[in-house]
Amino acid sequence: MIKSIAAKLVLTLTLILGINMVSNADVIRLVVKEDLASCTGVAPMTCMQVKYKNSKNWELFYSPISGFKYQPGYRYVILVNRTKRTNVPADASAYEYKLKKVLRKVKMKQNTTTAWDFVLKHKWKLIQMNGVTQNDSPVYMTFDGEQKRVSGKSGCNSFFGGYDKSDGKLSFKQMAGTMMACSPELNKLEREFLTLIGDKTFKYDVAEQTLNLYQGNKLVLMFGMAPLK
């Protein structure tokens, strides 16, 4: 009889505690982004990116969500039980999170934008040639990704030709240009530039909004980004 009463009391207390825990939990709705982001908690790590009900921008989410099996490449809409913790360590979250329900899971198209896509969107003005800074240089070039053509100004003349790009290398081919008379200074600049790029192959990279062309390990041409007009 005593054991039966004790068992009933334990069951009653368990139910009460369970009800209290549920009642103390907030249910929140989260949109979870399809990729992780670098963040810093106790140490550098990766975090989910989420939006709450009133969020305009993605926010870093530092805590794990119990029961939620996140898969990169998918955007989720989920309901989560959020429970306030007691005796929280200084470096820990004030809340515990537990998945309540996955409302939506959608496969997202992956972003395939490359450095070369960035190059195609801009005009590139010469700012350095063979280690010499070019102040207010008239030389620039643009690239047509569909036609695989390059064109621009080599000084006071226009130039044009084709290009090939693969494995971090950029090759110019069949270069030609107009033949207007120029000042001696522009003639010298134009001749040096066209000789340097004419039917040549370079290694290239894009860094700090500059397009850099190398022969071997030597930087020979540097172009700065300028708006297309």
Rank of each mutant, 00 (worst) to 15 (best):
M1H: 15
M1T: 15
K8D: 15
T12H: 11
T14I: 12
G18T: 03
S23A: 14
N24P: 03
N24S: 13
V27R: 01
R29C: 06
V31G: 06
V32N: 01
V32E: 00
V32M: 04
E34Q: 04
E34S: 05
M45F: 05
C47A: 11
M48W: 02
K53W: 05
S55D: 14
E59F: 04
E59T: 09
Y62G: 08
Y62I: 06
P64E: 09
P64R: 10
G67T: 00
F68V: 06
G73F: 00
R75W: 09
Y76Q: 02
R82A: 08
T83D: 00
N87K: 13
A90R: 15
D91F: 15
D91M: 15
A92P: 08
E96I: 03
K98T: 12
K98G: 06
V102Q: 02
V106T: 10
K107C: 07
K109H: 10
K109S: 11
Q110I: 09
Q110Y: 10
T112E: 01
F118S: 04
V119M: 04
V119T: 02
W124P: 00
L126D: 02
M129G: 02
N130R: 15
N130C: 12
G131D: 07
V132W: 10
D136R: 09
V139T: 05
F143A: 04
Q147Y: 13
R149H: 09
V150G: 01
G161E: 00
G161F: 00
Y163P: 00
S166E: 09
S166K: 10
D167Q: 12
G168H: 01
K173V: 08
M175R: 03
M175I: 07
G177S: 13
T178V: 07
M180Q: 08
A181V: 06
R191S: 15
T195Q: 15
T195W: 11
G198Q: 14
D199Q: 05
T201K: 07
Y204S: 04
V206Y: 01
Q209C: 10
Q209R: 13
T210G: 04
L211E: 03
N212E: 03
L213G: 00
L213F: 09
N217G: 14
L219C: 08
L221P: 03
P227S: 11
L228H: 05
L228Q: 06
K229V: 09
